[in-house]
């Protein structure tokens, strides 16, 4: 199913115009059977999130909750892979054909969040945020991410670096951020992200003596000592 999915930008544009014309009626009426379970699980999780009345949709905790659930159901029930996650076509399809109402509720009528800007498609962003932070299991990943903010999502997902993400490096940065986050250094994540980008011009973390763990320790210790 995934490999045969064709959903061009032109198709996405047409679909988005329909949503724009009638945003309140954007819930899909006829989704392919393959995606029914996915929609069911994710929409249920959306409702679960709001059981606590104080929760807001326009929040980091909503993005984290939805990202983690999307990641887990795609991984466990849909054999979703990095190869698929790299294809904007997949995210356009999910955003406009399976979850248009969800994306609309979260971001309103912003075409870049549905399909237009590959770096801003919301479902894609929250999936990669979880993937780049994954600690082997959902609970551990949630534990590492729960205290963060929307700025961390932006710093992590936007700063892919030239040529793409170094997935293992990103995961280690997130693991250690949990340890050092309570320090008194303001904007620590933003700072280490910038330092990392600069150092990557010269050094390959996986080839450093002591490996990625040591490389990341050095990034944090630059600001902490």
């Amino acid at each position: 199913m995934w490999e045969n999915l064709i959903y061009t930008k032109a198709q996405a544009k047409v679909k988005y115009q329909q949503i724009e014309a009638e945003p309140e009626g954007s819930a899909p009426s006829n989704i392919k059977p393959f995606f029914k379970l996915l929609r069911e699980v994710i929409m249920k999780e959306k409702n679960n999130f709001f059981i606590d009345n104080s929760q807001k949709i326009n929040s980091y905790s909503f993005d984290l909750h939805m990202g983690l659930n999307l990641y887990c159901v795609l991984k466990e029930k849909y054999a979703f892979t990095e190869r698929l996650a790299a294809q904007d076509e997949v995210w356009r399809y999910l955003s406009l054909e399976i979850f248009p109402d969800l994306v609309y509720d979260r971001h309103g009528l912003k075409d870049q969040r549905f399909y237009k800007d590959p770096r801003r498609i919301w479902l894609k962003t929250i999936w990669w945020y979880i993937h780049l932070s994954w600690q082997g299991a959902a609970e551990e990943t949630f534990d590492v991410l729960k205290e963060n903010s929307a700025d961390v999502i932006m710093q992590l997902v936007d700063r892919s670096g030239s040529g793409g993400y170094r997935v293992d490096l990103a995961r280690e940065i997130m693991r250690q951020y949990k340890i050092y986050n309570d320090s008194s250094i303001p904007q620590l994540f933003r700072r280490i992200s910038k330092l990392n980008t600069a150092r990557l011009n010269m050094t390959e973390p996986n080839l450093v003596e002591g490996g990625i763990e040591r490389y990341v320790e050095d990034l944090y210790s630059y600001f902490l000592n």
């Binding site: 990095e82 190869r83 996650a85 040529g163 170094r166 997935v167 996986n206």
Partner: peptide, 10 residues
């Protein structure tokens, strides 16, 4: 390095 895969490694 694969920009289209959004990933790189050594």
């Amino acid at each position: 390095m694969s920009k289209q895969s959004s990933q790189r490694g050594v």
